[in-house]
């Protein structure tokens, strides 16, 4: 536990000190919220049969984009760079147990994502008059479910990246289309049929739906077990791939 606390502090220091990465994973979803919020925050958007305010719709979407950005993309790129630069190998050579190390890395990601979510919710309330969430327990569960599933997918994708230089290219190529297709920026109801078919498979679609239910509509998260199952299954697949193929050593010697 002492080791976990030590490594969690280390991870936080490392995250905030790397300004480029902190901007990319932490600030960008907030910046997009402000940009798109000013574009269509006041218009109404069709969500299935309902009509909702653009700002509220976007707020939940940006929390979905945030999880893809911090837990998936940011984590994956960080770990690939550490692996290829030999830092993971060095850590493996110390008495710090690998499980404690990875838990602290994930714990740190959850902290970053939680701060980001709180900021998005506060900004949404202050700037766009989106109402406060009414089901706090479900918000917490939502964040934990999302962080666990997307971090597992982030660990899994590190196994598909061969070099530090290629890490942001590969990760961006996966997560940016996923964020757009899953409807984090725009309502997918206007998407062509084939994109909606793809969207129906992606974990971020279900996470974003849960985020809308919980944050916009004040539903408890367990009201939609189907969506939870989808997100959890993707997380489990990610975890299985990570356990089977995660490497601590760079490709070259």
């Amino acid at each position: 536990m002492k080791l976990f606390a030590h490594e969690l502090r280390v991870e936080q220091k490392l995250f905030w000190r790397n300004r480029e990465a902190a901007f990319f994973t932490f600030a960008l979803p907030i910046v997009f919220f402000l940009i798109f919020g000013s574009v269509y925050g006041d218009s109404t958007i069709k969500e299935g049969a309902r009509r909702v305010r653009g700002a509220a719709y976007l707020e939940a979407g940006m929390i979905g984009y945030g999880i893809a950005s911090t837990a998936f993309a940011g984590l994956a790129i960080t770990l690939v760079i550490r692996r290829e630069s030999g830092i993971l190998k060095r850590v493996r050579g110390t008495p710090l147990p690998p499980a404690v190390y990875l838990s602290a890395v994930l714990g740190s990601t959850v902290i970053v994502f939680a701060i980001q979510t709180v900021l998005i919710i506060v900004l949404g309330h202050v700037l766009y008059d989106v109402r406060w969430p009414t089901v706090p327990l479900s918000v917490v569960l939502l964040l934990l479910l999302g962080a666990a599933a997307f971090a597992a997918l982030g660990l899994a994708i590190t196994t598909a990246v061969r070099s530090a230089e290629g890490s942001s290219a590969v990760v961006n190529a996966v997560y940016l289309p996923m964020a757009i297709i899953s409807g984090t920026f725009f309502s997918p109801t206007s998407y062509p049929h084939f994109l909606r078919v793809v969207a129906d498979l992606l974990p971020l679609t279900y996470f974003t739906k849960l985020a809308r239910d919980v944050i916009l509509h004040g539903k408890e998260i367990w009201a939609d077990p189907g969506a939870i199952t989808w997100v959890a299954c993707w997380g489990a697949i990610g975890l299985a791939v990570a356990i089977a193929r995660f490497r601590w050593e760079p490709r070259e010697g």
Partner: peptide, 22 residues
């Protein structure tokens, strides 16, 4: 190890207290 592997954004002293903590 044969090649150097360090955190670019941490100082010398910070590295030693990070790894010393293990």
């Amino acid at each position: 190890l044969q090649s150097s592997s360090l955190y670019p954004n941490l100082t010398v002293a910070e590295h030693l207290s990070v790894f010393g903590g293990y």
